[in-house]
């Protein structure tokens, strides 16, 4: 098991009321699994992704990521865990605008203190996503599909145990989206990484092993595509 969420609550307090965004979430993900989290807008998908990836802390409940309890970790410990074991792909790519494509891909490795061989590995990954010739281009010189491919290369550069993707094709046209999807699944298969995808796109969700449906901050179904098991 690589990810486990137990009785997770996330509430936000405003001046005179309390808003519960996640309400008693329980699930676990096995190593190598590909899971889609789907649901309507405001159902708490992105909040759940943020909590599972250690970007935010739950109001209550316990989260285990790659064998480590992240609920009790401070911000720096979570940063270290993210760097060692987690990869990210964002809807809006989130490349550092002042770094070239190559430098963007190298960053996670350099953060690990592994600068040796980082460049070769990053170049290799850029070749793999078809951008070997664009390694010295800045994000502003790349198209949306190309930026997301750089983002894919960066996500796999630190050999993460688990990869979180937030609407990875949400900002792309159908054709480009398909290319990125295929690359994502191919690389994931190759690297044997666990993949958690937050998406609206049911076609994409159907390509995963399991779909968790959220509504109003609660899990309303957790369905394995292959085994068709439902909670």
């Amino acid at each position: 098991m690589i990810l486990e969420a137990k009785e997770i609550f996330k509430t936000y307090k405003s001046v005179n009321k309390e808003l519960t965004v996640l309400d008693n979430i329980n699930f676990h993900v096995e190593k190598g699994e590909i899971v889609a989290i789907v649901g309507p807008s405001g159902s708490g998908k992105t909040t759940l992704l943020g909590l599972c990836a250690g970007l935010d802390s739950p109001t209550s409940g316990a989260l285990q990521l790659a064998g480590e309890g992240i609920s009790q970790m401070n911000e720096n410990e979570k940063a270290d865990l993210r760097n060692r074991k987690v990869g990210f792909i964002f809807q809006n790519f989130q490349l550092l605008p002042t770094l070239t494509a190559l430098e963007n891909v190298m960053i996670p490795l350099e953060l690990q203190g592994r600068p040796k061989g980082a460049e070769a590995k990053a170049l290799d990954l850029l070749e793999r996503v078809g951008l070997g010739g664009r390694s010295h281009h800045y994000p502003s010189q790349l198209s949306g599909g190309e930026m997301q491919r750089v983002s894919l290369a960066r996500a796999f550069s630190n050999d993460p145990e688990i990869l979180f993707a937030d609407e990875p094709t949400g900002n792309l046209d159908e054709e480009t989206g398909l290319i990125v999807e295929n690359l994502l699944f191919d690389l994931n298969k190759e690297k044997q990484t666990t993949l958690i995808i937050v998406t609206h796109d049911l076609d994409l969700a159907n390509k995963t092993d399991r779909i968790i449906k959220l509504k109003g901050g609660k899990i309303v179904s957790d369905q394995s595509i292959k085994s068709s098991s439902t909670i």
């Binding site: 970007l55 911000e75 720096n76 940063a79 270290d80 865990l81 993210r82 760097n83 060692r84 987690v86 990210f88 989130q94 490349l95 550092l96 605008p97 002042t98 960053i107 996670p108 953060l111 690990q112 960066r154």
Partner: peptide
Amino acid sequence: VQSIAILRCLGMKSE
């Protein structure tokens, strides 16, 4: 802010 958030997301410590 966005670049800093990305760096933090990729594992860079706040300090």
